[in-house]
């Protein structure tokens, strides 16, 4: 119990550092590219346009208001991808600093996931624009979105911690993970609909073992379909998020004292 109190105290002590790190990430991201913030809206919009053309015109699939369908899933997936990717490199990337100063190492991982989350929230404007342009209906369920984002944020923190510590010991994780991410994307119904054209085993695999399915299904429900998410995916989402967090924190805790020898 004391330990927990101590942890929260340090977290509080370094809250300004986290804020500063997050604002650094955003500043640099927007400063580096010519269009700045506009780019983080333009980017999902443009990919959406391309995918919409490919998917509906060339492949002739029929999904109603495809742009909104796509974006409501893709934004979450992109957030997961960016945040875990960045989190993975967060400890190794700050090696020079960590060698000299005592700073709780998870601060950097946490800051990365957080800044990606903020970035995603900011680029929600893209979704808004698309919904306005396509005259999509605004369902009141959309107000539940923060809950979904929170679940995913917790999940990403857990995964991020796990990857960050692993990357300290095995640098090639980065390559392996990027291959996995590609596979993961195709195994998640983002650009397609998980309908009866897919075999049964695929349905079971995706719904049973792909955490992203839970978050994307929830977000689709509240944005696209206007449904309250079913209890299975809603509570499943929370459960997965916390299980991942426990795994991440545990693995990080266990090995953090050894980092210094490998960075």
């Amino acid at each position: 119990m004391d330990l927990l109190k101590y942890r929260f105290k340090t977290l509080f002590k370094y809250k300004d550092l986290i804020r500063e790190l997050v604002s650094r990430d955003l500043k640099l991201k927007y400063r580096r590219s010519f269009l700045g913030y506009v780019w983080s809206i333009l980017d999902p919009l443009l990919t959406m346009v391309v995918l919409t053309i490919v998917f509906t015109r060339l492949l002739g699939r029929k999904i109603e208001n495809y742009p909104v369908y796509l974006l409501s899933g893709r934004m979450l997936y992109d957030f997961m991808k960016d945040s875990t990717n960045n989190a993975m490199k967060s400890v190794v990337g700050n090696a020079a600093l960590l060698r000299k100063v005592y700073v709780p190492k998870y601060i950097f991982t946490l800051a990365k996931v957080t800044s990606c989350m903020v970035d995603m929230v900011l680029s929600l404007a893209a979704l808004l624009i698309v919904m306005l342009v396509t005259r999509a209906q605004f369902h009141p369920t959309i107000l539940l979105l923060p809950l979904v984002i929170l679940q995913l944020y917790i999940f990403c923190c857990g995964l991020g911690f796990f990857l960050a510590q692993l990357n300290v010991f095995f640098r090639d994780i980065q390559y392996i993970y990027s291959v996995m991410l590609t596979a993961w994307m195709y195994a998640t119904p983002i650009i397609y609909q998980l309908d009866e054209r897919f075999p049964r085993w695929f349905h079971i695999a995706v719904k049973g073992f792909n955490p992203m399915y839970y978050y994307i299904a929830q977000s689709r429900d509240i944005i696209y379909y206007g449904n309250i998410p079913g209890p299975r995916i809603f509570w499943g989402g929370w459960l997965i998020a916390f299980v991942m967090l426990v795994i991440g924190v545990w693995s990080f805790q266990r090995s953090k004292d050894k980092f210094i020898l490998y960075i």
Binding site: K13, Y14, D16, L17, R19, E20, L21, R24, L97, V101
Partner: peptide, 11 residues
Amino acid sequence: FLNGMVLGHSR
């Protein structure tokens, strides 16, 4: 600012 906060100072 960053460096100061790394050293544990507040904003």
